[in-house]
Amino acid sequence: MNTSFYAYLQQLELLGFFTGYPLLYAATLFIAGNQPVKNNLKSRVVSLLPFAYALVGTLYLGLQLKNLYPHYSFENVRLSIQHPWLTGWAILAVLFWIPFLAKKKVLSLFHSLVFFFLFVSDLLSNLKQPSSGAAAIRNDMKIYTGSLLFNLSAFALVVCLFFIANYFKRKSQ
């Protein structure tokens, strides 16, 4: 991994966007799955998880485009992106807008686990640093908390939009 500060910042960006999703995913399924009778509403809400993830991916893509603005040349993109594979992988999250992929919601979990493992490996490597490790872990956890809230907000927004759209759809019928 590139150890420059700029690369570290880009890694934190990735963690900030995507590490909160696995816990949100597991919690949502846990809550929905614990109910004795699965009603239609809950299964619908759970099915919106990949769309929330796609929204997060879209926002990440937007941030990258904003950072690169107005120099979108291949050379500039190559020089600016410090983690090209991870960034490319993150941008793939927008594919979950496609209903076919969104139906396979476990794919969104697998997709986000890449970043969660990155987060865990960062935690473990910081544990070995006696001097600056605790401060770095504290920072990582702040970002993780932010990511949790961010993903939760994205999910709440998608659920709200879904119900609003549903309401108008029913009204028009």
């Binding site: 696995p22 816990l23 597991a26 846990f30 935690l123 605790a134 872990i137 990582d140 956890m141 702040k142």
Partner: peptide, 20 residues
């Protein structure tokens, strides 16, 4: 598996928070 995943994520997250 949801429970296992949930537990695992909670343990990792909780450990991180405790250390931090």
């Amino acid at each position: 598996s949801n429970k296992t995943l949930m537990l695992l994520l909670l343990i990792i997250s909780g450990s991180g928070y405790i250390i931090s």
